[in-house]
Amino acid sequence: MSKVTITVNGREMSGEAEGRTLLVSFLREALGLTGTHVGCDTSQCGACVVHVDGKAVKSCTMLAMEAEGAEVTTVEGMADADGSLGVIQQAFQDHHGLQCGFCTPGMVMSTAALLKDNPTPSEAEIRAYLDGNICRCTGYHNIVRAVMAASGQDVSGLGVVAAE
């Protein structure tokens, strides 16, 4: 066991890790930040996406020791300073972009990374960017709408035929 120190959501935190401890296990078990989830063991599902030094990574495919000294942002750090939902989180709630909530942390973190690089992505760009995030509940429809809405785009006409 060795001590690993990272700055998570602006706060320096330390814990013990083995060589084989994955960043996601370190966050969940050593630091108690269970918002980041594990949905697969082949680096495909994206439930574990966090930002390391500003870049989205799959925390199940990075060793905790590789993050020594890094700035890490998790879904727990995405709310506004006053504790209210951040823009992306609010868009996901407004547009029903989540159901069971399990993939949601990864979706939020991937969306944040996308919008940083591409502030107004097209539908196709969003769908392509979310290639590494699997959702089983939503059929992606409202996730894509939420991302568009979070980037300030009008989504009112997209796919909804209102009932009387």
Binding site: E123, D131, I134, Y140, V144, R145, G159
Partner: peptide, 24 residues
Amino acid sequence: ASYMDYAMPRADDVPFYQVDYSCN
């Protein structure tokens, strides 16, 4: 036996769906 070989639908495999439930 894993997502490497079991193809889960991803965001770019599906379109926006048009949904109506007015004929109830």
